Each structure stands twice: as structure tokens, then as C-alpha cells.
Simulated assay, not measured.
Amino acid sequence: MAVLVLIECAEGQIKKSALEVASYGFQVAQTLGTTAAAVAIGDINPEALTALGKQGITKVYYNNQPEVKNFVPAAYVNVIAQAAETSQAKVIILANSTIGSAVGARLAVRLNASFATNVVSLPEISGESFKVQRGVFSGKAFADVNLTGDRKIIAVKKNTFDIVEQEGTAETEQLSLTFSSADLAGAPQETIKTTGKILLTEAEVVVSGGRGLRGPENWHLIEDLADALGAATACSKPVADVGWRPHHEHVGQTGTTISPNLYIAAGISGAIQHLAGVNSSKVIVVINKDPEAPFFKAADYGIVGDVAEVLPKLTEAARALNQ
């Protein structure tokens, strides 16, 4: 029962979440007494893929044809399915990401495989039983799921598993496919990229602001602290709704779900919908002038004070530590 891992890349570089997934796949392979292979698609540097040997990957199949330079769900599914057949993989592991969500269900139908999303545990394998634990109800509870069938697909929750570091170099092999017009029907017509900023979903530290900032003219307080900490910026839904910040920065149940090592919430009251998107953060720091703000109940650390006074002091302290 070989293991195949999907490696997501951005601008030719392997994403942090992909290293987590590779490490997870290696551990699953060890449990099954087999090896872990990987598949990478799109704008990738084949030479960089050899470094996946440090995460226990023995071989990487890749496809960097022009048709898949940008993410195209149907074409991606074809490449992953081909890699699964070539490697004879019975277990396929993805990140629980935008790409993972888009291809996971399609791949499960294509391969007639069982599929579990938002997985937070290594599988418990005993005989025919292949059980994993997954987060449900926006992370408020967990469910044990037994994956049946010949093939199994697991989407692993980001920032849940440590990255394995060891000695090793992965072998690479190019996969070339002929894509039909149907395969490329969902290809993007235009791609607009934000440069010079840390990707929110990959960030280890996130600084987020709410209506307590009082207006977009004060957003530099969030950006200054984020720059000092090497963090990504985010916002609450009301802030995005009134146009202070773009909607792709909105975190919460109806926005982006994140799980950084550190989440700093400034001027956010902590509505249940917002908490649903950030409650997987390892450490939560809340800054609010209202001592009764609901967010303090979920915080690991809290500061009662005006964000206009607190944030500059935190920024100054962070810059002093970096000197």
C-alpha cells in the first residue's frame, strides 16, 4: 500500500504546508511498511523537489507543462491520478487547502476512493481498519472516521503536524500528459498576484484588525506590527464588508480559516463566526479596550487597552528584539 503526497508550490517554491504533508505521508508510509512518493504540478523547479528527501520522500513525479502553470482542477486530477497509477499508491495525502479541497472530491470519484478532510491525526491501522480523526463543526469537535475501500484520500489540516528533517535526496521523474479541452475548461483567464507579502494561509504569525481600528487610515498600525514580526495581515468580516480591507484578508467562518502559531487580534470583539476561523491557532493574543469582549475567553493572552496605544508599543518592542 504505497503512499502518494501532493506537493503544492507557489512561484516555483514548495509551500510550508506541503512540507507538513510530506512529513505526514512519510510517517503513514512507515506505519504501513512502505515508501512515500510525491507529485508536484505547475510552476515548479524540478531541482528543488529533490530536497523533499529530507521529509522522507523517495521519489517525486512532476508535471510543469504550460497548461498547468496555474491551477486547473480537472487537469490536476488527471496528473495526480496518473502519478497514483505509476506509483501504485493506495493512500493519497493532500493539504486541507483551496487546492486540496478542489481536487480531493474529484479525485475520490475518479479513483473510487474514500475521502476524509480536515484530518488532525495519524491513522490508526489495525487489520482492515484505517481510522483517522478529523475536525468538525468549525473545529469545535472531532470525529473518528474509518476509511474503507482499496484507495484512501486524506486531506491534512494545516499547521497540525511537525515537519520532519532528516538526510536524504528524492529522485524525480517527469510526467507528460495530453490534456483535452474539457480538462482545461476551468483554466484561469487572468492571474493577479500580490507580491512582497506573506501568504495568509501559510503564515506562522498573523496580525489581524477589526472595527476597533476606527478606520482604514489607522491600518498602518496593523501593518507596522506585521512587518516587525514577519507576519501576514488579516481582518474581521465587518472590516472587509465596509471596504477597509480586501475580502481575501477576511478570516472567519465565512472567510479564510487559518491555524498559525501566533494570532494577534486587535480591536476584534470575537464573534463566534470569527472564532471559527482562527480557533486552531496555537497561541491567541487579544487586544481590546472592552474587558468584557468575548474574544478574551478564547485568548491565551489578553491586553485591555486602546489599540492605538498598544500596537505601537508592541511594534517598538518587536523591532528592538530584531536589532
Rank of each mutant, 00 (worst) to 15 (best):
L147V: 04
D150F: 04
L111E: 14
R151I: 09
A113S: 12
G139W: 15
A108R: 11
I125F: 01
G100E: 14
A108I: 15
G149R: 12
N112E: 15
R110P: 03
S126T: 01
S126M: 01
I125R: 00
D150G: 07
G104W: 08
G139E: 15
S138T: 10
G104R: 07
E124H: 03
A116Q: 08
G100H: 09
A113Y: 10
L111I: 05
S101I: 14
A143C: 04
S114A: 14
S138M: 06
R134S: 13
V103K: 02
L147A: 01
I99G: 00
A113P: 13
R134V: 10
F130T: 01
L111M: 08
V120H: 03
I125D: 00
A143D: 11
L122D: 03
V119R: 05
S126W: 00
G104T: 07
E128R: 02
S121K: 03
V120F: 09
V109W: 15
A143M: 07
K131C: 00
R151D: 09
N146Y: 02
L107A: 06
V136G: 03
V145F: 03
V120M: 12
S114D: 11
R106Q: 10
S138W: 12
S126F: 00
R110F: 04
N112D: 15
R106K: 12
L122K: 05
S101W: 15
Q133R: 11
A116W: 10
N146W: 02
A108K: 13
I125G: 00
G149A: 06
L122G: 02
G104V: 10
Q133L: 13
V132D: 04
R110C: 03
G104Q: 09
V136Y: 12
S129W: 00
E124Q: 10
V119S: 05
G104A: 12
S121R: 08
G100Y: 11
A141H: 09
A143R: 03
N112Q: 13
S101N: 11
Q133F: 10
T148S: 02
V145T: 05
F137V: 03
I153S: 08
N112Y: 12
I125A: 00
V103C: 01
L122E: 04
K152N: 09
K140N: 12
F137E: 07
E128D: 08
T117E: 14
V136F: 07
A141R: 06
V119I: 09
N146V: 02
N112H: 14
A108C: 10
S129E: 09
K140M: 12
S101P: 06
S121G: 02
R134Q: 14
E124D: 13
V109D: 14
R134P: 05
V119D: 12
V120W: 09
G127C: 00
